[in-house]
Simulated assay, not measured.
Amino acid sequence: MLDEANAYERGMDDDLTFQTVRELAGTAYMAGRSAPPTAVEIEAVAKKLLWWDMEADWEDVMPSDDCFWTLAEPEMRASYLRGARIMLEIARKAVTE
Rank of each mutant, 00 (worst) to 15 (best):
D53W: 05
P74T: 05
W69V: 02
G32Q: 05
L49G: 13
P37W: 01
L49A: 12
E59C: 07
M30E: 15
G32R: 08
E59R: 11
M54Q: 14
A31G: 08
D66F: 05
L81S: 10
D60A: 13
D53F: 05
W51N: 01
S64D: 14
T70Q: 11
R77I: 03
D53A: 15
V40P: 01
V40D: 12
V45P: 01
T38E: 14
E43H: 08
T70D: 13
D66Q: 06
V40A: 14
F68L: 02
L50M: 09
F68W: 09
V45R: 02
L81E: 01
L71D: 13
S34Q: 09
D66H: 09
M62W: 11
T70W: 10
M30K: 06
P63M: 04
M54Y: 08
A72Y: 08
R82S: 08
T38Q: 14
E55H: 06
F68R: 00
L50R: 02
S79C: 15
L49W: 06
A46E: 00
E43K: 10
P36D: 11
S34W: 10
P74W: 03
A28G: 09
R82F: 13
L49N: 14
L49V: 03
D65C: 07
W58G: 00
M62L: 10
T27Q: 06
D66Y: 09
D60K: 07
C67S: 13
E41N: 04
G32L: 06
M30V: 11
D53E: 07
E73M: 11
A56W: 10
E75N: 05
D53Y: 02
V40K: 08
A28E: 15
I42Q: 03
R33P: 06
E55A: 06
I42G: 00
T27Y: 11
E43V: 08
W69N: 00
M62E: 10
D60G: 05
